[in-house]
């Protein structure tokens, strides 16, 4: 590489970071691309461009960049974190989960990166949920042809509507922000319709179709989410690793007893972790409580919950 190129790449990267912070992701992507032309051996340039492309919803581009970044630097938490998000959006939940788990492993191994653990944990759960939903859809389709047909119609409608919005965005008749909002709206309307439809079928066959609630012993007492990497404290209570560490960094005490508790004293709870996984693997009814984001609460379900 000619002398000075590395420096030029660094300058371009900094300019790109500035654009990124301003919310100009297209500008950032271009600057990172120019930086990569100057220096294609810096893994950060690829993950930065992947991050910009993630914002622009250029999923394939994110995947390419992350793989290149990993090629240069194998232990690359950020690359796997971004990769998982793109794979999830591309509807490859198995690959996404494996990337997210790799990111989580790298994160827990590195003492400086615990701040990211909570976000990665949320992503891992999201991947698990996506995986589970695909399996669940297949199961329901096998059981109930009519429901399957109706769900498929709804999905086709939804995909066509999304396609229309994409077309309009590509043609420039709808702005990026506006289009993204419209797509989010379409998605939530579609999800609500599917939910309502399943509700109707569940009422007629509660034994096989009802939503399942996650039992309390699988739920982290801090986030109220099903656990992914539970750790146990001295008094025998278990919490999600990422959240209890956030708490212990502020106050080195057991959340329940207030006794002194250090991060090093936490132990993985392997049996509980397996119980959580097994619950998600179980294929009866749909899991009520592993929603991602701000799920609306629905009192209609109270009578259908089975434990």
């Amino acid at each position: 590489m000619p002398a000075g190129n590395e420096y030029a790449a660094e300058q371009l990267k900094n300019a790109g970071n500035l654009k990124f912070r301003e919310g100009d992701f297209e500008g950032a992507e271009q600057l990172y691309s120019q930086a990569i032309i100057k220096n294609n051996k810096n893994p950060l340039l690829f993950t930065n461009r992947a991050n910009a492309r993630l914002k622009l919803e250029k999923w394939e581009g994110v995947v390419d960049d992350c793989l290149k970044s990993v090629e240069i630097q194998r232990e690359n938490m950020k690359a796997f974190f971004l990769l998982a998000q793109a794979q999830l959006s591309l509807n490859h939940p198995n690959e996404a989960l494996s990337s997210a788990l790799t990111a989580y492993d790298l994160c827990t191994k590195s003492p400086t990166q615990t701040n990211n653990a909570a976000r990665i944990t949320a992503l891992v759960l999201q991947c698990k949920k996506a995986k589970w939903e695909i399996r669940e859809r297949d199961r329901i389709r096998r059981r109930a042809d009519l429901l399957a047909e109706l769900e498929e119609k709804l999905e086709q409608d939804y995909k066509r509507q999304i396609f229309d919005v994409d077309e309009k965005m590509a043609a420039g008749t709808v702005g990026r922000v506006e289009g993204t909002e419209e797509k989010a709206e379409l998605k939530s309307t579609w999800e609500k319709k599917v939910d309502d439809l399943r509700t109707a079928f569940a009422v007629s066959d509660p034994e096989h179709m009802a939503k399942r609630e996650v039992p309390d012993y699988l739920i982290d007492g801090i986030t109220f989410e099903i656990m992914h990497d539970p750790v146990v404290t001295k008094n025998g209570r278990s919490y999600e690793r990422a959240t209890i560490i956030e708490h212990l960094k502020r106050s080195a005490t057991d959340p329940l007893t207030r006794e002194p508790l250090k991060i090093e004293e936490l132990r993985p709870n392997i049996a509980l972790k397996e119980a959580c996984e097994q619950f998600l693997e179980g294929n009866t009814g749909w899991v009520y409580d592993c929603g991602f984001g701000e799920d609306a609460t629905d009192p209609r379900w109270a009578h259908l919950s089975s434990y």
């Binding site: 909570a118 949320a122 801090i222 986030t223 109220f224 989410e225 409580d289 984001g293 701000e294 799920d295 609460t297 009192p299 109270a302």
Partner: peptide, 17 residues
């Protein structure tokens, strides 16, 4: 995001009793 998820769940619980 942490807060909204957790509060959403608290609200669900408070529906019951």
């Amino acid at each position: 995001m942490l807060a909204s998820k957790r509060l959403g769940k608290e609200l669900t619980k408070m529906h019951e009793n």
